[in-house]
Amino acid sequence: MSRTLALATLGSMTARAVLRALAGVGGLDRTNFRGNTVSLAAGPALAIGASVSAAAGAGSAPAAGAALVAGLGSGAVGFYDDVVGGRPEHKAKGFKGHLGALREGRVTSGLVKIAGVGTAALAASALLAASRPGRGRFGTVADVALGAGVISGTANLFNLLDLRPGRAIKAGALVAAPLAAGRSRGLVAGPLGAAAGVLPDDLGERAMLGDAGANAFGALLGVALAARTGPAGRAALLAGLAGLTAASERVSFTQVIQRTPVLRELDALGRRP
Rank of each mutant, 00 (worst) to 15 (best):
G57M: 03
S248V: 08
I114K: 11
V38W: 06
L160V: 12
L174K: 02
A173P: 06
R87C: 06
L72S: 05
A247H: 12
G105L: 01
L263H: 09
R185E: 09
A227G: 04
V150Y: 06
L192D: 07
Q258L: 14
A181I: 09
R132S: 10
A235R: 05
S152W: 00
R20L: 14
G26W: 04
L244N: 02
G110T: 08
A214H: 05
G35A: 03
R164V: 07
T108R: 05
N32P: 08
P88S: 09
L102K: 00
A50Q: 04
L72R: 04
D143W: 12
I257G: 03
A121W: 00
T260E: 14
A17C: 10
L28W: 15
V107D: 11
R250H: 07
A155W: 06
A67P: 01
H90Y: 14
G270C: 13
L209T: 10
A130Y: 08
A176H: 05
R167Q: 08
V141R: 13
K170G: 12
A196S: 02
R272E: 15
G136N: 00
G59R: 02
S39N: 08
A124N: 00
G186V: 08
V112H: 04
M13P: 10
G222F: 04
A130D: 07
D82Q: 10
G27A: 07
G213N: 10
L19Q: 14
N215C: 11
G59A: 05
T229P: 11
H98W: 11
L199F: 04
N32V: 07
R103F: 15
L127N: 01
A45V: 01
S131A: 15
A195M: 03
T37M: 14
A207T: 01
G49A: 03
G197I: 09
A76W: 14
R250N: 01
A148Q: 06
R167V: 05
H90V: 02
V107L: 15
F33G: 08
G243H: 09
L7W: 00
D143L: 06
A195I: 09
L28M: 15
L28R: 11
A195C: 06
G57C: 05
G166L: 04
A123D: 00
P191M: 02
D29H: 12
V188Q: 09
S39Q: 05
G186L: 13
A148P: 06
T37W: 13
G222E: 09
V188L: 11
R234I: 02
T154H: 02
A17H: 07
G166M: 07
S60G: 02
L111G: 06
R132K: 13
L111Y: 04
A180C: 09
A55L: 10
L28T: 12
D267R: 02
T108Q: 04
F79E: 03
D201M: 10
L192S: 11
V117L: 00
A180L: 15
G97C: 05
Q255V: 12
L209Y: 01
F138E: 15
V69H: 08
P62C: 05
A236I: 07
V117M: 02
R20D: 13
A142R: 13
G233S: 04
